[in-house]
């Protein structure tokens, strides 16, 4: 079932469809891999975050900057899910990550 995340900020300003917006990791993060999980510390806020499973997989892809569509394609292939579900879940996670300030939109992407 396609899930549309209504909390995403529209990308109209960039004239780029949401799925094509390139995201990159925030520069204020310290990250560590512990028991397969990604533990992140945002030094701006002192808050820790935890990513597991698919979240870690997506986080790795974001190392080089990536769009939701690129990430979703990798998720679909690696986790054997259909493209729509992968995109919906990816958009949801990216929204959460952006809301928390863990990723930012790459203006050059």
């Amino acid at each position: 079932m396609f899930h549309f995340c209504q909390e995403l900020r529209p990308a109209k300003k960039l004239g780029v469809p949401m799925g094509e917006v390139v995201f990159k990791k925030s520069a204020s993060l310290i990250e560590r891999r512990i028991d397969g999980e990604a533990i992140l510390l945002d030094i701006k806020s002192g808050v820790y975050y935890d990513l597991k499973d698919v979240g870690v997989f997506i986080w790795e892809i974001l190392s080089g900057g990536a769009s939701a569509r690129q990430i979703a394609a990798a998720v679909a292939e690696s986790f054997n899910v259909d493209a729509e579900t992968a995109l919906a879940d990816t958009l949801e996670l990216l929204n959460d990550l952006e809301t928390e300030g863990l990723i930012v939109r790459d203006a050059e992407g």
């Binding site: 512990i34 533990i39 820790y48 975050y49 935890d50 959460d96 928390e100």
Partner: peptide
């Protein structure tokens, strides 16, 4: 929920003796 509260972080890391 992405945020990891301090006590949850502490339990996770202390069990593993993560420095």
């Amino acid at each position: 929920m992405l945020q990891l509260p301090r006590h949850a972080l502490h339990k996770k890391l202390v069990g593993r003796a993560n420095p």
